[in-house]
């Protein structure tokens, strides 16, 4: 774990060990449910989550990102830690995603600032360490620029859509890519989000804390608004419809989802050329890569093995199943519709 100063703890609260921080300050979780003074942090925490669900970034009491008074620091950090506790208590995974994203954005703006103005060696070292902790990526300063390994750059930028991020449009020298502080942090956005959400996911689920029931209940009803409900008609099973829907909206479909969709449609006799356009809206669309991958799945290249659509069971574990009564206990999406007809006869 890093040794952080006050400013860093308030700016990057996810870098602290939550339980340890509370203990060091002499508090226990249960006090937050009852103590009227501490309850202020609970309100702040609740607010912090709600703001995140609205797609906005939490605006803190920090003045210029600096914690002026000790109690401000505590409130800042407490509200973050409690937000995680509340999310955990609610058990709603959609909240994790949205909260992590908003917190990542918040951290991003501080990181940009810190990186941009770091001038002494110790300042540079600290921010380098923070970035490494968050992303596992080594950043170095060279004159007015920051450099990262070409391979690290490619791993991050490969999913970016804008041409500007193609390696050819960057200054590359001796195995390093040169970027300004803003671009470096933008490049690492995903990693920061992953870091925060994995931190939340790894945190243990606490027992219900008396006094926080209302907040938790309210969070559950907010989260439910984001959980999609799907209506099925026609020949495709709900999981496939959902996947198509996500792509059509230009949202990101995880790899497991793309695998399911592609193998399903290929099995239904569609050609690689028919399927490829479906992925056009994906934020990380790349024609050559898509065709390559589809051809691989179809068994047109590489190993020559044709991949089949995963089972419903597998898809359930991947959160890709949106079963309705029409699914009727089938074991593979490919059976959708087929079995129903069979049973009717």
């Amino acid at each position: 774990m890093l040794t952080l100063g006050h400013d860093e703890i308030t700016r990057y609260p996810f870098l602290t060990d939550a339980g340890q921080y509370l203990k060091d300050k002499g508090f226990s979780l249960s006090q937050f449910g009852t103590d009227p003074v501490l309850k202020i942090s609970v309100e702040k925490a609740f607010n912090r989550i709600v703001v995140a669900t609205e797609g906005k970034v939490y605006n803190s009491d920090l003045i210029d990102g600096q914690a002026s008074k000790p109690h401000v620091i505590e409130l800042e950090v407490f509200s973050f830690l409690l937000a995680i506790v509340l999310i955990k208590l609610s058990g709603m995974s959609t909240l994790v995603k949205r909260f992590a994203l908003a917190e990542a954005r918040r951290a991003e703006s501080y990181l940009k600032e810190d990186l941009g103005k770091a001038s002494s060696q110790s300042e540079i070292d600290l921010i380098k360490k923070i970035i490494f902790e968050l992303s596992g990526i080594e950043v170095n300063k060279k004159d007015d620029f920051f450099t990262i390994h070409v391979s690290d750059y490619l791993k991050q930028s490969a999913t970016f859509h804008e041409r500007e991020w193609k390696l050819i449009n960057r200054h590359v020298e001796n195995g390093k890519v040169f970027l300004n502080s803003e671009k470096i942090i933008r490049l690492l956005r995903k990693e920061i989000g992953v870091y925060i959400s994995s931190k939340i996911n790894k945190a243990p689920v606490p027992e219900m804390i008396p006094g926080l029931e209302t907040e938790v209940k309210n969070l559950i009803s907010i989260a439910k608004k984001f959980t999609p409900i799907f209506v099925t008609t026609g020949e495709y099973p709900p999981c496939i419809k959902h996947a198509i829907n996500v792509l059509e909206k230009g949202e990101n479909l995880p790899h497991s989802g793309r695998f399911m969709l592609a193998t399903f449609l290929l099995s239904k006799g569609q050609s690689v050329e028919q399927i490829a356009p479906l992925f056009k809206n994906a934020p990380d669309y790349n024609e050559r890569v898509t065709l390559y991958q589809l051809n691989n799945l179809a068994g047109n290249s590489g190993s020559g093995t044709q991949y089949t659509c995963p089972s419903c069971q597998k898809l359930t574990t991947q959160n890709l199943c949106f079963a309705t009564s029409e699914c009727d206990n089938i074991i593979n999406p490919l059976q959708f519709g087929r079995k129903r007809k069979y049973e009717r006869n």
């Binding site: 391979s151 490619l154 490969a158 193609k166 390696l167 050819i168 590359v172 195995g175 890569v289």
Partner: peptide, 17 residues
Amino acid sequence: SDFQTLGSRERSDLADY
């Protein structure tokens, strides 16, 4: 090289470079 672990997508961008 540092590029050993790169996937297809990354190698495609490297090829364009």
